[in-house]
Design a protein around this nucleic acid. Structure first.
Lengths: 161, 161
DNA sequence: GGATATAGGACCAATTTGGTCCGATAAGCA
DNA sequence: TGCTTATCGGACCAAATTGGTCCTATATCC
């Protein structure tokens, strides 16, 4: 189901490993690939994508490499993933320029759009710094209960077995 | 990105179209396929899956067909989609029986699990009856603000351009 | 027994995906 | 000025996934 592309995963890993390099020295793709256990050529493409997205900075030439363009706390999950996903739609009817045979009176389209926007909003709210010490914010999140109450619309569900 | 499989989409559509048949008569696959504009053979498979999941009931023989096994309000979004998705993991490292080279001290794994569980929880909270009159619960949801406040952990983000 | 349906396996074509390779460009350094 | 180290980015390929078709068995009604 609905898995993020592998390049996106690599991007997440790379950003994580690059965390130390914000403001400091840069790391070459070869070195980084060794640390991350990610194929070099693929990682190269991924980093190019991240650079175009303004998430990492690149230094060409000898002694060059990649480094974070800003601190982890200012990098959103969505930003990291976005360059490598061709669509942000959970269902086809939410993709741009898409018409289906039921498009006129389709009762699915609107709630789908809502669900879609909702998930994206999640991806925006999640920043990469939450990934370094997950246990802390996990604790705070479950304590405050912000994670549980969502689309349920305030009414409890009666569910069958 | 991370789209639901087409069979899942068909399942959502089918359930929606079958809404009238709960407790009432059943509809043959051929008829339903005509209404939904979905290829017959595919819809047949989809309905079989939904039947195994206990969402629809099947009546064999002449005059038979499919009908909802319970009212829309008791059918969760997740239930409809689940039979057609081979994994519920957003990233590979969340799939069962998966080991990666960084599995020992991977700082991504835990928050990923969290994000994963979170999305699934969304899919559980969303029931199919919300799809019939989306504007109503959309209004109530946005009014109460339950949809906006989520993983943000209570602190506001300082975002770059 | 014949007609109408579901049940479900086998199979195929097409797209998507993950990955490799190779040349171009740019920067540092002797 | 060359040589080396890097990013840049297009072209290309093989494998897996996907969306879809077909064919046969089984159950039920008339």
């Amino acid at each position: 189901m609905f898995k993020v592309s592998r390049k996106s995963e690599y991007a997440l890993i790379a950003v994580q490993y690059l965390a130390a390099t914000y403001g400091g020295n840069v790391v070459s793709v070869t070195d980084l690939a060794g640390q991350c256990h990610v194929p070099v050529d693929v990682l190269a493409k991924v980093l190019q994508g991240l650079k175009r997205a303004g998430i990492v900075r690149a230094v060409k030439g000898a002694g060059g490499g990649y480094g974070l363009a800003r601190p982890l706390a200012e990098i959103r999950f969505l930003d990291v993933v976005h360059p490598f996903e061709d669509t942000l739609a959970v269902v086809t009817c939410q993709m741009p320029n898409t018409e289906c045979e039921r498009s006129d009176n389709c009762s699915l389209r609107d709630p789908m759009a809502l669900l879609n926007a909702y998930i994206i909003r999640q991806f925006e709210a999640l920043t990469m710094d939450m990934f370094v010490a997950p246990h802390q914010w996990l604790a705070s999140a479950t304590r405050t209960g912000t994670m549980v109450e969502t689309m349920s619309l305030g009414r409890r569900m009666r569910m069958p077995a």
